[in-house]
Write a protein that binds this DNA or RNA. Structure first.
Length: 550
RNA sequence: GCGCCCAUAGCUUAAUGGAUAGAGCAUCUGACUACGGAUCAGAAGGUUGAGGGUUCAACUCCCUCUGGGCGCGCCA
């Protein structure tokens, strides 16, 4: 469905011939929308801005949408929607399964790389943001009609498996009794053993060779370690309420067979060259090269990521690639994309974006660590938040805190602040949703209907300013979601929902719903229904549960 | 040394080159015995790190600094 601002924009384009850059009004007295198009045109045409504005108003036909257009200040055009237009916009939104979120004309297949924990280690604080943010992107892009393929690039390959497997053999460990926490302890023992026992270290090295060579006994143990680990990851995913499943797992090991081919290809085409015994690829503008194969003949993450990229473009058919990792890897991904462009692996038709987020800090302002100085387990963070709130509320608190500011900034993991029920927090939004749900529940009960039903009320009266503000805010949901889909900025959706919840509170305060009669009552119930739907959908897009009662 | 990110009210933060830089927390004042007070209204709090420049218009773009964080060839 076309939004009112789309309609208005179209009319302005007709009148002016250029994009009017219609924006929400910055202040209530400026109406609902504003445009500075007259200022820009005046500059180009060497005329007075207000004169240009007056001409635009003359040529503009929007009487069916707006109150008379006002020219203000240096030449701004201010638009105020007619209340009947606002009312039908909300009604259309209520009837729309997408709640006013515009669907893309041509769906893009988007591959999103996120979460990526390491086998035989529990998920820790370093996986919190990538998992939450990536999952939000998956939800939002699906909401606008794109086809999302999540890719969980788990760390299931590397030298650590040599010592892990040797340690299992040494201890005659029964893998049936091992869980992920146990595997992590095993890892610590294996590491200590590796450091202190040269003989063990040598056996571990041989075991790596056996693993790479495809030795069946070794591979079998390796697969068991992966299975144990993914079971552990899935428990954490369930707790976090993220969408990732085993079907999304594409670990580092899955690209092994491609690595030789990529090295040969790039070397033959002169994109990669031997340097000090290593195979490297240099790209203009980068000081350091990508190292495809080290001087010992081993493969590193540069070439693994190249392989993953090719797979995503060629096999998965991606039109857009999104990598969600911490900001420190910005350089790595810039280089990866540059090499891929140069090699032709990444055609210009495919968008590639690295979304780098800031660090999670402790309340001391330093990177979040346990007392022992190790990375805190994700489950411990969840436990900490659940000490001050129920699981659903704690989850809202954590996710909202993570998503509500600019992603590249660091933020402090402070359970007390996050779980606050007042102010700009996840729990406050849940509360607003629960409160408006209660009104609808009672209205349905009074009508003798099942409380899970959806009322068929229509917005017909918007006499009060609080009603108009709420209605206007509701109609902006689509653009808020669209902006997140385009720019990958979840905090815009957070801001929008917080503003909507604020409008609801004012409405709730000033406009009795259940005590009203006739059309006014039905109209207010329709506003409540739309607000509940939008808040609920918006929270869902953030990955936050929206309970009807708290 | 080179490169990237950050700096806005006491604290946490928003702002697509546009009107008086917008919120929340904390502080102060007030409202309604409440369709859920997890509320609402109001006050106070800013030379947007500093200095130049571009522009009709700069928190936003460019340059130079300062302070903080993070990266810089065979780990990921």
């Amino acid at each position: 469905m076309a939004s009112v601002s789309d309609l208005l924009t179209a009319r302005l384009v007709t009148a002016t011939g250029v994009d009017p850059e219609l924006r929400p009004a910055t202040k209530p007295q400026f109406g609902h929308f504003q445009s500075n198009v007259a200022l820009r045109l005046a500059k180009q045409q060497g005329r007075k801005p207000r004169e240009v504005a007056a001409q635009i108003v003359d040529e503009l036909d929007v009487a069916d949408l707006c109150e008379p257009v006002e020219i203000a200040g240096p030449g701004f055009l201010n638009f105020r929607l007619r209340t009947d237009v606002l009312a039908s916009a909300v009604n259309a939104q209520l009837a729309d399964e997408h709640l006013g979120v515009a669907q893309v004309d041509e769906p893009v297949r988007v591959v999103i790389d996120y979460s990526s924990p390491n086998v035989a280690k529990q998920m820790h604080v370093g996986h919190l943001r990538t998992t939450i943010i990536g999952d939000c992107f998956t939800r939002v892009l699906r909401a606008v009609g794109d086809e999302v393929v999540p890719q969980n690039h788990i760390g299931d390959w590397g030298r650590q498996f040599g010592m892990l497997i040797e340690q299992i053999q040494d201890e005659s460990l029964d893998l049936d009794t091992l869980d992920l926490a146990g595997a992590e302890e095993l890892y610590l023992r294996a590491n200590a053993h590796f450091e202190s026992d040269a003989d063990f270290a040598e056996r571990a090295r041989l075991r790596v060779v056996a693993l790479q060579g495809g030795d069946e006994t070794t591979r079998a143990i390796w697969r068991r370690l992966i299975a144990i680990s993914t079971a552990g990851f899935n428990r954490t995913y369930a707790r976090l309420g993220v969408l990732l499943t085993d079907a999304d797992i594409a670990g580092e090991s899955s690209y092994n067979d491609m690595l030789d081919g990529i090295c040969d290809d790039l070397q033959h085409r002169g994109i990669a060259v031997m340097d000090d015994g290593a195979l490297i690829a240099r790209v203009d503008g980068f000081d350091a090269p990508a190292i495809l194969r080290n001087s010992a003949g081993g493969y590193g993450y540069d070439v693994t990521d190249l392989a993953a990229l090719r797979h995503r473009v060629d096999d998965l058919g991606a039109g857009r690639l999104i990598y969600v990792t911490d900001a420190r890897q910005a350089n790595h991904f810039a280089l990866l994309f540059a090499v891929s462009r140069k090699a032709g692996y990444l055609p210009s038709s495919v968008i590639a974006e690295h979304i780098g987020y800031g660090m999670v800090l402790g309340t001391d302002g330093h990177p979040f660590k346990t007392r022992e100085g190790t990375a805190a387990h994700l489950d411990d963070l969840l436990d900490a938040a659940e000490q001050t709130a129920s699981p659903e509320v704690a989850l809202a608190a954590i996710k909202y805190a993570d998503l509500s500011n600019q992603l590249q900034k660091d933020y402090v993991f402070d359970p007390v602040r996050m779980t606050a029920t007042t102010g700009d927090t996840g729990p406050y939004l849940q509360y607003a949703h629960a409160r408006v749900s209660q009104i609808l529940r009672r209205a349905l009960a009074e009508q003798g209907q099942d409380e899970d039903a959806t009322g068929d009320w229509q917005v017909s009266v918007l006499a009060e300013l609080a009603e108009q503000d709420l209605a206007l805010s509701l109609t902006r949901f689509g653009e808020a979601v669209g902006e997140v889909a385009a720019n990958l900025t979840p905090h815009k959706l957070c801001m929008y929902l917080y503003e909507l919840a604020g409008k609801l509170s004012v409405f709730y305060e000033q406009c009795p719903v259940l005590k009203a009669d006739g059309d006014v009552r039905a109209s207010r119930l329709a506003l409540c229904q739309a607000t509940k739907d939008v808040l609920g959908r918006g929270l869902t897009l953030l990955g936050i549960p929206a309970p009807e009662r708290m």
